[in-house]
Lab assay of single mutants.
Amino acid sequence: GSMEQGFLPKGWEVRHAPNGRPFFIDHNTKTTTWEDPRLKIPA
C-alpha cells in the first residue's frame, strides 16, 4: 500500500507482479529489481 511506498528511496516505486510478488522500479536509472532497495546498505 501507500505506507510502504513512503519508505522507499527517492525515485523508487513498488509494484506487484501478476503473481503478487512485489518488485521495485528505480525511475532514476529506469530499471527494475526484485531486491528491496531498503535492504541494501549504502556504501
Rank of each mutant, 00 (worst) to 15 (best):
residue 1 G to Y: 08
residue 1 G to W: 07
residue 1 G to K: 12
residue 1 G to H: 11
residue 1 G to F: 10
residue 1 G to A: 13
residue 2 S to V: 11
residue 2 S to E: 11
residue 2 S to N: 13
residue 2 S to Y: 12
residue 2 S to R: 13
residue 2 S to F: 12
residue 2 S to W: 14
residue 2 S to K: 12
residue 2 S to A: 13
residue 2 S to M: 11
residue 3 M to S: 11
residue 3 M to Y: 11
residue 3 M to F: 14
residue 3 M to V: 12
residue 3 M to N: 11
residue 3 M to Q: 13
residue 3 M to D: 12
residue 3 M to E: 09
residue 3 M to T: 11
residue 3 M to G: 13
residue 3 M to A: 12
residue 3 M to P: 12
residue 3 M to I: 13
residue 3 M to R: 12
residue 3 M to H: 11
residue 4 E to V: 14
residue 4 E to M: 14
residue 4 E to H: 14
residue 4 E to C: 15
residue 4 E to Q: 12
residue 4 E to F: 11
residue 4 E to T: 13
residue 4 E to P: 11
residue 4 E to I: 14
residue 5 Q to N: 14
residue 5 Q to P: 11
residue 5 Q to M: 15
residue 5 Q to I: 14
residue 5 Q to A: 12
residue 5 Q to L: 15
residue 5 Q to V: 13
residue 5 Q to T: 14
residue 5 Q to Y: 10
residue 6 G to S: 11
residue 6 G to N: 10
residue 6 G to A: 10
residue 6 G to Q: 10
residue 6 G to L: 13
residue 6 G to V: 10
residue 6 G to P: 09
residue 6 G to W: 09
residue 7 F to W: 14
residue 7 F to R: 15
residue 7 F to D: 15
residue 7 F to I: 14
residue 7 F to S: 15
residue 7 F to P: 15
residue 7 F to K: 14
residue 7 F to L: 15
residue 7 F to A: 15
residue 7 F to T: 15
residue 8 L to C: 09
residue 8 L to D: 02
residue 8 L to W: 04
residue 8 L to N: 02
residue 8 L to T: 01
residue 8 L to A: 02
residue 8 L to V: 02
residue 8 L to P: 03
residue 8 L to S: 01
residue 9 P to K: 04
residue 9 P to L: 06
residue 9 P to D: 05
residue 9 P to F: 03
residue 9 P to S: 03
residue 9 P to E: 06
residue 9 P to A: 03
residue 9 P to T: 04
residue 9 P to H: 03
residue 9 P to C: 09
residue 10 K to M: 14
residue 10 K to T: 10
residue 10 K to V: 10
residue 10 K to N: 12
residue 10 K to F: 10
residue 10 K to S: 14
residue 10 K to G: 09
residue 10 K to D: 14
residue 10 K to L: 11
residue 11 G to Y: 03
residue 11 G to A: 00
residue 11 G to T: 00
residue 11 G to Q: 02
residue 11 G to I: 00
residue 11 G to M: 01
residue 11 G to D: 04
residue 11 G to N: 07
residue 11 G to L: 00
residue 11 G to P: 00
residue 11 G to F: 03
residue 11 G to V: 00
residue 11 G to C: 05
residue 12 W to H: 03
residue 12 W to V: 05
residue 12 W to S: 02
residue 12 W to F: 04
residue 12 W to L: 04
residue 12 W to N: 02
residue 12 W to A: 03
residue 12 W to M: 04
residue 12 W to Y: 03
residue 12 W to I: 06
residue 12 W to Q: 03
residue 13 E to R: 00
residue 13 E to P: 02
residue 13 E to Y: 03
residue 13 E to W: 02
residue 13 E to F: 02
residue 13 E to V: 01
residue 13 E to G: 01
residue 13 E to T: 01
residue 13 E to Q: 03
residue 13 E to C: 04
residue 14 V to M: 15
residue 14 V to R: 05
residue 14 V to S: 03
residue 14 V to Y: 01
residue 14 V to P: 02
residue 14 V to N: 01
residue 14 V to F: 01
residue 14 V to L: 08
residue 14 V to D: 01
residue 14 V to Q: 09
residue 14 V to H: 05
residue 15 R to Y: 06
residue 15 R to M: 07
residue 15 R to A: 09
residue 15 R to P: 02
residue 15 R to H: 08
residue 15 R to L: 08
residue 15 R to S: 07
residue 16 H to D: 06
residue 16 H to L: 15
residue 16 H to Q: 09
residue 16 H to F: 15
residue 16 H to N: 08
residue 16 H to K: 08
residue 16 H to T: 14
residue 16 H to A: 07
residue 16 H to S: 08
residue 17 A to K: 04
residue 17 A to R: 04
residue 17 A to N: 06
residue 17 A to L: 12
residue 17 A to W: 05
residue 17 A to I: 03
residue 17 A to D: 15
residue 17 A to E: 06
residue 18 P to Y: 06
residue 18 P to M: 07
residue 18 P to A: 11
residue 18 P to R: 10
residue 18 P to N: 07
residue 18 P to E: 10
residue 18 P to H: 07
residue 18 P to G: 07
residue 18 P to W: 06
residue 19 N to K: 02
residue 19 N to M: 00
residue 19 N to I: 00
residue 19 N to C: 14
residue 19 N to P: 02
residue 19 N to Q: 03
residue 19 N to H: 04
residue 19 N to D: 14
residue 19 N to V: 00
residue 19 N to L: 01
residue 20 G to N: 04
residue 20 G to A: 02
residue 20 G to Y: 01
residue 20 G to K: 05
residue 20 G to V: 00
residue 20 G to M: 02
residue 21 R to W: 08
residue 21 R to H: 09
residue 21 R to S: 07
residue 21 R to F: 08
residue 21 R to M: 09
residue 21 R to D: 14
residue 21 R to Y: 08
residue 21 R to N: 08
residue 21 R to E: 14
residue 21 R to T: 10
residue 21 R to K: 11
residue 22 P to S: 07
residue 22 P to G: 04
residue 22 P to E: 14
residue 22 P to Y: 08
residue 22 P to F: 07
residue 22 P to D: 12
residue 23 F to A: 07
residue 23 F to K: 08
residue 23 F to N: 07
residue 23 F to V: 14
residue 23 F to G: 06
residue 23 F to D: 07
residue 24 F to V: 01
residue 24 F to W: 12
residue 24 F to S: 00
residue 24 F to P: 07
residue 24 F to D: 06
residue 24 F to I: 01
residue 24 F to Y: 13
residue 24 F to C: 14
residue 24 F to G: 01
residue 24 F to E: 05
residue 24 F to K: 00
residue 24 F to N: 01
residue 25 I to L: 05
residue 25 I to W: 06
residue 25 I to F: 10
residue 25 I to D: 07
residue 25 I to E: 06
residue 25 I to N: 04
residue 25 I to A: 03
residue 25 I to M: 05
residue 25 I to R: 01
residue 25 I to G: 05
residue 25 I to Q: 04
residue 26 D to I: 01
residue 26 D to Y: 03
residue 26 D to R: 00
residue 26 D to S: 01
residue 26 D to V: 00
residue 26 D to E: 02
residue 26 D to H: 05
residue 26 D to M: 01
residue 26 D to F: 04
residue 26 D to L: 00
residue 26 D to A: 01
residue 26 D to G: 00
residue 27 H to K: 05
residue 27 H to L: 09
residue 27 H to C: 14
residue 27 H to Q: 06
residue 27 H to G: 06
residue 27 H to E: 06
residue 27 H to S: 06
residue 27 H to I: 08
residue 28 N to A: 07
residue 28 N to L: 08
residue 28 N to I: 08
residue 28 N to Y: 06
residue 28 N to S: 06
residue 28 N to P: 01
residue 28 N to E: 07
residue 28 N to M: 07
residue 29 T to F: 03
residue 29 T to D: 04
residue 29 T to M: 05
residue 29 T to C: 15
residue 29 T to H: 05
residue 29 T to P: 01
residue 29 T to L: 05
residue 30 K to W: 05
residue 30 K to F: 05
residue 30 K to Q: 13
residue 30 K to M: 09
residue 30 K to R: 09
residue 30 K to V: 04
residue 30 K to T: 06
residue 31 T to D: 05
residue 31 T to K: 09
residue 31 T to S: 08
residue 31 T to E: 06
residue 31 T to L: 07
residue 31 T to M: 08
residue 31 T to G: 03
residue 32 T to M: 15
residue 32 T to R: 11
residue 32 T to V: 15
residue 32 T to F: 12
residue 32 T to H: 07
residue 32 T to L: 15
residue 32 T to A: 10
residue 32 T to Q: 10
residue 33 T to Q: 09
residue 33 T to G: 04
residue 33 T to L: 04
residue 33 T to D: 04
residue 33 T to I: 05
residue 33 T to R: 04
residue 33 T to F: 07
residue 33 T to A: 03
residue 34 W to D: 05
residue 34 W to R: 04
residue 34 W to T: 05
residue 34 W to M: 06
residue 34 W to C: 08
residue 34 W to H: 05
residue 34 W to P: 04
residue 34 W to I: 03
residue 34 W to V: 03
residue 34 W to F: 08
residue 34 W to E: 05
residue 34 W to S: 05
residue 34 W to G: 03
residue 35 E to V: 10
residue 35 E to H: 14
residue 35 E to S: 06
residue 35 E to P: 02
residue 35 E to K: 08
residue 35 E to T: 08
residue 35 E to I: 13
residue 35 E to R: 09
residue 35 E to L: 14
residue 36 D to H: 02
residue 36 D to S: 00
residue 36 D to V: 00
residue 36 D to I: 00
residue 36 D to R: 00
residue 36 D to M: 00
residue 36 D to W: 00
residue 37 P to W: 00
residue 37 P to D: 03
residue 37 P to E: 01
residue 37 P to N: 01
residue 37 P to A: 01
residue 37 P to G: 02
residue 37 P to Y: 00
residue 37 P to I: 02
residue 37 P to R: 00
residue 38 R to I: 03
residue 38 R to P: 02
residue 38 R to Y: 04
residue 38 R to M: 05
residue 38 R to L: 03
residue 38 R to V: 04
residue 38 R to G: 05
residue 38 R to A: 04
residue 38 R to S: 05
residue 38 R to W: 06
residue 38 R to N: 05
residue 38 R to F: 04
residue 39 L to K: 10
residue 39 L to H: 09
residue 39 L to V: 09
residue 39 L to G: 11
residue 39 L to T: 13
residue 39 L to M: 11
residue 39 L to N: 10
residue 39 L to Q: 10
residue 40 K to P: 13
residue 40 K to V: 10
residue 40 K to W: 09
residue 40 K to A: 14
residue 40 K to M: 11
residue 40 K to L: 10
residue 40 K to S: 14
residue 40 K to G: 10
residue 40 K to N: 11
residue 40 K to D: 09
residue 40 K to F: 11
residue 40 K to Q: 12
residue 40 K to T: 12
residue 41 I to L: 14
residue 41 I to K: 11
residue 41 I to C: 15
residue 41 I to W: 11
residue 41 I to T: 12
residue 41 I to A: 13
residue 41 I to F: 13
residue 41 I to S: 12
residue 41 I to G: 12
residue 41 I to D: 12
residue 41 I to M: 13
residue 41 I to N: 12
residue 42 P to D: 11
residue 42 P to G: 11
residue 42 P to F: 08
residue 42 P to M: 10
residue 42 P to N: 12
residue 42 P to Y: 08
residue 42 P to V: 14
residue 43 A to C: 15
residue 43 A to G: 13
residue 43 A to F: 10
residue 43 A to M: 12
residue 43 A to W: 09
residue 43 A to E: 11
residue 43 A to P: 13
residue 43 A to D: 11
residue 43 A to L: 13
residue 43 A to N: 11
residue 43 A to Y: 10
residue 43 A to H: 11
